[in-house]
Amino acid sequence: MNTSLVSIIIPAYNRAHLIKETLDSIAAQTYKNWECIIVDDGSTDDTEKIVNQYIKQDSRFQFHSRPSNRSKGGNAARNYGYELSKGEFINWFDSDDIMEPTKIELQLNRLTGSDFDFSVCQTIVFEENINNIIGIRQENLYSEKPFESYLTGDLVWLILAPIWRKSFLDKMDSLFDETLKASQEWEFFSRVLFKYNKEYDIINKPLVFARKHTNSISHGNDIQVKTAHYITARKKLYLFVKNNNPSKETIIYFGAYFTSKFKNYLKYKNYKAAFNLLLDPLLGFRYFKLIFKVKLIFGMVLFVIFGKGESVFSGQKYKFDNE
């Protein structure tokens, strides 16, 4: 009989109106040996009051505030919760999503006695209430090249889907990047998959329900700010992989991504952002030929002077992007 402790880590910010459903779904788990660590990110509503009601009824729930010396945001809350955790297994979760009652039991059974370091399940996406189903987040959770597939968006899972061995996570140089406000899950899971050369467990069954709405912890409404963080995440990941023999698919992805964002900035006359992207990483992108770098510079000059220069980039066709 499995008795391993599972640590469920939840960052929360102003979730008083939603967190009850999340905590109810955790309390209803068929597997009983868990701790649920809620880390508040500075809520101004009744989130703490509601969580304390659960703590009075069930000591497996915990409430903690993000330390003032840690960065604001869900990433710092997730990392801090990990530092507090005592479980052999980790399940990060969000404060507005829902677990199917057998999630922990089924995934833990697959991990116990196996060589798998994590188990991933299917995710159902819903809007407003759990009866309003939009669909499955992604049907296929398997790839022969999981890193490349996750990089390009052909393989997707959300933060709530995996359960991880803590002993495996302890070997990572870092967990969630606390400077990122968007694309942080993608950046972290990409780093995991780049170094991971074993099979991981897949349960082709929906065990989690992800709520779709615009008021998530890490995503605001400013598309320019989000785009800047998407780019930053990819810059960081490129620096992480470039000296470790990245595959051809990986090189193509990064070259296409940075070039596309550069062209978009020029098109919408955001020349400062375009110039910064040109300096780093485009001109330093070791896989671009010199002639192409010259074209990038010439294209920017044309846009700045004449407000157009699309012809310079003609013939550069790319298929990519998972935002």
Rank of each mutant, 00 (worst) to 15 (best):
H64Y: 14
S68F: 10
I26L: 09
K72Y: 15
D58K: 07
T30A: 08
T44G: 12
R66W: 07
A28H: 13
K49W: 11
P67T: 02
Y54R: 04
I26R: 02
T44S: 05
R70Q: 14
A27S: 13
L23Q: 11
N33W: 06
K32M: 01
D46F: 12
N75Q: 12
D45G: 00
K56A: 12
D58T: 04
K56P: 02
D24H: 11
D24G: 01
Q29K: 04
Q62F: 13
S68G: 12
E35L: 00
K56V: 09
S71M: 08
G42I: 03
Q29W: 05
E35I: 00
R70D: 14
H64W: 09
I37E: 00
P67S: 05
G74I: 09
I26P: 09
I37H: 03
K32Q: 15
L23K: 00
K32L: 15
S71W: 03
D24W: 06
Q29R: 08
K72V: 14
S68T: 13
I26W: 02
E21H: 14
I55V: 15
K32D: 06
N69R: 10
H64C: 09
T22W: 10
A27V: 01
D40I: 09
N52W: 01
Q57K: 08
I38E: 06
D46C: 12
G42M: 07
I37F: 08
G42S: 11
H64N: 14
A77Q: 01
F61L: 08
N75F: 06
I38T: 06
K20A: 10
I38M: 01
P67V: 03
K49F: 02
I26C: 06
D45S: 11
S71R: 12
C36V: 01
D46Y: 12
I50T: 12
I38A: 04
V39T: 04
G74E: 15
D41S: 09
G73S: 05
K72D: 11
P67G: 00
K20F: 01
E21F: 03
I37D: 01
Q53H: 07
T22P: 12
Q62C: 10
V39F: 08
I55W: 03
A27E: 05
D46H: 01
D46Q: 14
K72P: 10
K32W: 02
S68H: 14
D41K: 04
I37K: 01
V51Q: 09
D24Q: 13
S68L: 14
D41H: 00
Q62T: 13
I55T: 14
T44I: 15
